[in-house]
Design a protein around this nucleic acid. Structure first.
Lengths: 127, 127, 127, 127
DNA sequence: GTGGTCTAGACCACG
DNA sequence: GTGGTCTAGACCACA
């Protein structure tokens, strides 16, 4: 399952775990990485993988459902909604947001355009 | 004062305000944007600028002091420590971390290296 | 079959489906709309009509039987019990309960007696 | 506090407690019974009054906030939002919905208009 | 004091 | 097996 491999928690982050889970899955869906109809990992399994209490993952799933990104059938697991509601964020748009956030942070350090670009290129080479 | 102009809160973020303040100032110092000896804005002034309770800013400063990034003198305000503690984090390293974070997020979307680079270039052009 | 036509699920309700089925049939019986001896629709048929799993309807029937409102004979389907158990709840009493519930809800809104009555009259005219 | 006196749980209902709390407060707000700016009872107090775990009430408040009905200030309690969002439901409309629900239930019992009205009048006299 | 989050484990409804 | 809810008690951020 793509979701299982892709969700990574940052335990040192100030963002609460359920928010990290919710946000990352939301972006995977918005970006089209998780296609409509795909089944998410079960609450308990993802909780185990991420070493969280089941309720924490359940809350993330619940908020995804409230947002219409996901559909849950009684007794039948949770799947990506067939109607990614309004889908205001195509994959390219999500990427663009990431890039914009990178720029904002970098410019706070008074980095030049060249430096910003070079840092990404260096990261690509090393990572 | 660089700090006043540079600290920007995201009220919709899940990161608590004191953390946003602490983190952003820490990075400004680590990156050398705020040079040693520079005076930070007073707790009350920064609190006013950011529309926070004074205690919230005070806590951020307190943690910066505990980290050795900042020194508070009685009656003399808060200044950037002359000894950037163990922090060898030069500006380039901070930038590198930002770039790495961007890559991590982007790859979660299964973006290729080319896409990641192109998104930054596009952002540079438009922003 | 009266029951089939009269049972209506509200899929958006927080009340679980089996409870909606059980409760509505119980009231139809208590109110005398379903007379003693009447045959209920089969589990599978009602399940099909309401788009539920058969087990869900089966559970509703089971609880009705446990309450003595209904009798299941081997091979003979499910029928309204000839002895409306302890339930002295005549149709008028059920109606009275509905009216009382309406009052409770309405008074929470600080509605006056006149308003409560007027709202019902208006609903009668329009519905 | 109006909210404290007005929220009444039905422990035998299939509707989960947090939903009862959320729904009742939402209607009190929509109906204008709780005016904008009014402070709701604290999570812990209402939890005590209703004999619920604090988290259960907290969840109800959270959903009210997500719905924009309520505003919560850090450390400063929960108040009715100044902008009852879109307020699609004036007090009269809420009442009308109650009346309509009463009619629907009553007609399932094949009650006549006269009976429906009489039952309300009787309830008014006795309650 | 306020609300927000997490945990651990329990029970329920559904398939 | 699935998700949903509740509890009890803990710790955190904020005023």
């Amino acid at each position: 399952m793509t979701a299982e491999r892709s969700v990574r928690l940052d335990p040192r982050s100030a963002v609460p775990p359920f928010e990290q889970v919710r946000g990352q899955i939301a972006e995977l869906i918005a970006a089209g990485v998780l296609p409509a109809g795909d089944r998410l990992p079960s609450v308990r399994q993802l909780a185990g993988d991420l070493d969280l209490a089941a309720g924490t993952v359940a809350r993330a799933y619940q908020e995804l459902e409230a947002a219409g990104l996901v559909v849950t059938r009684r007794g039948g697991g949770t799947r990506v909604a067939t109607t990614p509601p309004v889908t205001p964020a195509a994959r390219g748009q999500v990427l663009a947001e990431y890039a914009a956030a990178y720029l904002t942070a970098g410019r706070r350090l008074a980095a030049t355009d060249e430096e910003l670009l070079a840092a990404v290129q260096a990261a690509l080479r090393s990572g």
